[in-house]
């Protein structure tokens, strides 16, 4: 097939600004995503994920009472997370490197700076689906592999030389990071 068929995909848009939410929803609809749920903050989204079971979450950074970074952290390592592996694309007007790094360090898959365009949003979605990264569990991190490129690193390699563990389903409770 040529292109993208996301008709069966369930997306969750977490955004407190209705204008941004409409913008993202419109792009998703235009590329064929039919099932789009919305929440206006991280806490509502976490609660909604228990029934919606999204395949993709697009979340804004700045929201109250729970912002996007805290939401992503809860999804990845929270004790009640409905799906620690769900792809998360974060949208933000804050683009300082330290803030982008903070999003990366809580397990966000992709980061997208506002103002967004259809091209940028679809590029991030493509990245999630065409180039999925293995997850990494370390002492202080659980989420998509943060090393996108295989480059030699100075110092000792801390990663175990092993084949990836393939989980057949959602995390068994006793293996949750």
């Amino acid at each position: 097939m040529i292109g993208f068929d996301g008709a069966a995909l369930k997306a969750l848009v977490v955004e407190d600004n209705p204008n941004f939410s409409l913008l993202i929803r419109s792009v998703l609809l235009a590329i064929g995503v039919r099932s789009i749920e919305e929440a206006t903050d991280g806490a509502a989204a976490l609660n909604g994920m228990k029934t919606v079971t999204p395949d993709l979450v697009i979340v804004d950074w700045r929201m109250v009472p729970m912002n996007g970074v805290d939401f992503a952290k809860q999804v990845r390592v929270g004790p009640d997370s409905p799906n620690p592996f769900v792809p998360i694309i974060m949208v933000s007007g804050y683009t300082e490197p330290s803030l982008v790094a903070a999003a990366r360090d809580v397990g966000v898959n992709e980061f997208m700076a506002k103002p967004i365009s259809a091209r940028i949003l679809t590029a991030r979605i493509e990245s999630v689906f065409l180039r999925p990264r293995p997850f990494v569990r370390a002492h202080s991190y659980f989420g998509p592999d943060r090393r996108r490129k295989r480059v030699p690193r100075a110092g000792e390699e801390r990663r175990l030389q092993q084949e990836p563990v393939i989980y057949p389903g959602i995390f068994p409770m006793n293996t949750r990071p």
Binding site: M1, I2, L9, P134, F135, L160, V165
Partner: peptide, 18 residues
Amino acid sequence: EVEFITPPNKLQSKVTMS
């Protein structure tokens, strides 16, 4: 220790992309 995990890929049945 660092462990690699391949997540369950439920999306393969839902999304097709060239």
